[in-house]
Simulated scan of single mutants.
Amino acid sequence: MSSTSSSKLFQPLKLGDNTLQHRIALAPLTRNRNDNDHAPISLMETYYDDRASVPGTLIISEATATSHDEEGQRNIPGINTEKQVAAWTKIISRVHAKGSVYFQQLFALGRANTPDYVKERSLPYRSSSDIPLEGYNAIPTPMTEEEIHQTIQDFVSSSKNAIRAGADGVEIHAAHGYLLDQFLSASANKRSDKWGGSVENRSRLTLEVVKAVVAAIGAEKVAIRFSPFAGFQGVAKDDIHELYSYVVEELKKLNAKFAYLSLVEAKGDPAHIVLDADQINKGKTLDFILDAWNNLSPVVVAGGYTPESAIWAVDEHYKKWDVLVAFGRHYLANPDLVYRIQHGLPLNKYNRATFYLVMNNVGYNDYPFSQEFLAAKA
């Protein structure tokens, strides 16, 4: 393994219209700190500002709902009202003031919305098909053609709002069992029309969303996220290689220089709360996607990484490709994570019990910077 000082992890990388100074990114993390109108609150400004403290860092926002109909979980963010856009504008300006790069992750939730909350707000509860999510006592309504086309436009509108708020780009969330993934997966998508059945049809919504967003804001500002091996929220797939090979080839046919592709390792499946990385990842590799992508643009990989395994990933396993490593829980607990990894400093331990405390600073902005980082900044 390379030493930290010589590792590609700390070499610059061009990403879209931006140049990163290293290859560590903040992964998108839902933390329920938004207000009851689904708008960011002031403590979130501090959170993102702190994690952008090392200049040239890629900051990816928490998943943000593309429309009011998709604001179906309590205290997740939207970017649909002027209040929401204004709040994100403050956050993004602080990230930029630190010299870092900001992408807004956008998602539609579909059947992953909370049924009781959706009913309380008189929102539609829908999905690709009428297949219920395990553990929920509600059956989603299959989306109509009109609703599908509206979903595409919602991704466009929210993307434009993110750019208006100052974002350097958007990440389209087609992973982890949310709406686009519900269409991709044959276990959730039982449609018999052009939006279901074959690999081509199940991929159609994701590809149409990407095409529409690219047309609206430019490919260099567009990224897309997939989790091929994840079974979270009932989207386990039996045709992983066929499905994602097709999607990648169709994306390449657009002749577009995307900002980046984001991929979740098998060990990053949220269905696995306690990670046995060796066992979960056994025989499951993202290599076939990176081979097909062929350095069209950088690839962000995420899922249970440590500082040591991140260095190994960029210098050995993925050395043929332009790869960044995104950290979630460790970045939450270490606002100066980039500095700590670069200088071999020990990490703060994260507290899982505080991950989703609504509108609360505990377990959010109370993790300390290292004394070394503070001294260096002073």
Rank of each mutant, 00 (worst) to 15 (best):
R352Y: 07
T285S: 15
A326T: 12
V85Q: 08
Q371I: 12
R51I: 08
L374P: 02
K237F: 00
N18L: 07
A186D: 13
S127V: 03
P40M: 09
Q150M: 12
Q73R: 12
Q342C: 01
A292L: 13
G283Y: 07
L106A: 11
R111D: 08
V325P: 06
G196L: 06
G56M: 04
V210R: 02
S309T: 15
M1V: 11
Y136N: 11
G135E: 10
V95T: 06
A313D: 05
K211S: 14
K98Y: 05
L324I: 13
V54W: 01
H330M: 03
T354M: 00
L43S: 14
K190R: 14
V209F: 09
N80K: 08
T4L: 11
D269V: 06
Y47W: 14
N365S: 10
F373C: 03
G304L: 01
V325I: 15
G328A: 15
Q11V: 00
F155Y: 15
P228C: 07
I289W: 11
K211H: 12
N334P: 06
D154R: 03
K282L: 07
Y48K: 04
R204H: 04
Y367A: 02
F355C: 01
A186F: 09
R329M: 04
M1S: 13
V214Y: 03
E220T: 15
S245A: 12
A174N: 08
S93I: 00
M44H: 10
R191L: 07
V209L: 08
K211I: 06
V248H: 06
F288P: 07
L205D: 00
T30F: 00
K14I: 11
W88Q: 05
A271T: 01
F103M: 14
A167N: 11
A87R: 04
H272K: 09
V210A: 03
T144G: 13
R329E: 07
Y305Q: 03
A353F: 06
V264K: 03
I131T: 15
L296S: 13
F355E: 02
L374R: 12
G197E: 03
T30Y: 00
F103I: 14
D181G: 00
A138R: 11
N32H: 12
A277S: 12
F10G: 03
A266S: 13
V118M: 11
L374H: 06
R202D: 08
L205H: 01
I41Q: 14
I148T: 11
D193V: 02
A188R: 15
T19E: 13
N294F: 01
V101N: 02
N295K: 07
E220H: 15
R23Y: 02
Y136A: 09
K8S: 12
N18A: 08
E147L: 11
F155C: 05
L20A: 02
Q182M: 11
S198V: 02
V101I: 15
R191K: 08
N189E: 10
N348W: 03
S187E: 14
L13I: 14
Y102R: 06
I273G: 00
F155N: 01
Q104E: 14
D50T: 08
W195M: 03
A313H: 05
F288T: 07
L205S: 01
D276M: 02
D278P: 00
N113W: 00
L43Y: 12
R204I: 12
F226V: 06
Y367P: 00
R94N: 13
K349F: 00
I139L: 10
D315K: 01
G56P: 04
